[in-house]
Amino acid sequence: MSAISVQNLNFAYGNKTALNDVSFDVGAGRFCALLGPNGAGKSTLFSVLTGLLSPPSGRVSLAGHDMGNHPRRALASMGVVFQQPSLDLDVSVSENMHYFAALQGLTKHTAAPRIQEALEKLSMYERRDEKVRQLNGGHRRRMEIARALIHQPQVLLLDEPTVGLDAATRHAITDHVHELAADGMAVLWATHLVDEINDDDKVVLLHQSKIIAEGTAQNLRKSQTLDEWFQQSTGAT
C-alpha cells in the first residue's frame, strides 16, 4: 500500500487549470521530490494534499486514509512544513512546539518526550528556550520540521522548505529529511532546486499542471545531469 496516493487529481481556479489529471504514489521509506518550475502547480497540489483545498475530481489518500471521506484520519497521519513559515516569533521554541502538539490533541504529558525527541533529531533541543525571533532562517526551518514530527506521522509533506536559505543550510536540512525517509517515513518534498535530490530518490516532474515524468532521478536523467534533464524537460533552455 502506498503511503501517499494521488489519483486523477484535477483542480482549477475558475478557467485556469492548476492540476490536470495528476496521479502518483509514494511508498513508505521513500523520499519523493515533487520537482517543477515556479507556477507548475506544486503549491496547489500541497493545498489539496493537506485538505486546504478540495478537488472537484480525483482522490488523495495518506497512509491509507482517503482525504475526501476521512479527512481527519488523513490529517492525523500527516506532518507538514509549509513554504511560508508558520511560527509565533515572540514565544519560545518549546512554546511553539507545545501549541502544535495541543492542536494535534496531545496532552502535555504525552507531548513533552515527543517534543524532546523531535528537537533532538533535528539538533534543536538545546535551543528549546530561545525565542523564535532570535533563531536564524535555517534553525527556524529545522524547528518547523521537528514540529511536524511530534505526532509521529507516517507521511511528511514539505513545500519548498529551503526557500531563502544558504547552500550549506539547505544541504543540512535536505540530509536530515533524507534520514527521516531512511527511517521509514514517506516524504514528499516540493522543490525547483535539483541539487536537493539524490540519485536514488523518486522524482515526480510537474510542469504546466501535468505530470510529465516519474521515476528515480538516476533513471530519468540517464547520462545527463539532473539539472540538464530538468531544463530540457521543462523547456527552460
Binding site: 490529517l75 492525523a76 500527516m78 513554504q83
Partner: peptide, 18 residues
Amino acid sequence: EMGSMRLLLTSPLPRWWL
C-alpha cells in the same frame, strides 16, 4: 498571510471546533 492559519486548519480536529 503568515501561514499559521494553515497550521490550525490542518489539525485533525473538526474545523468548526477549531
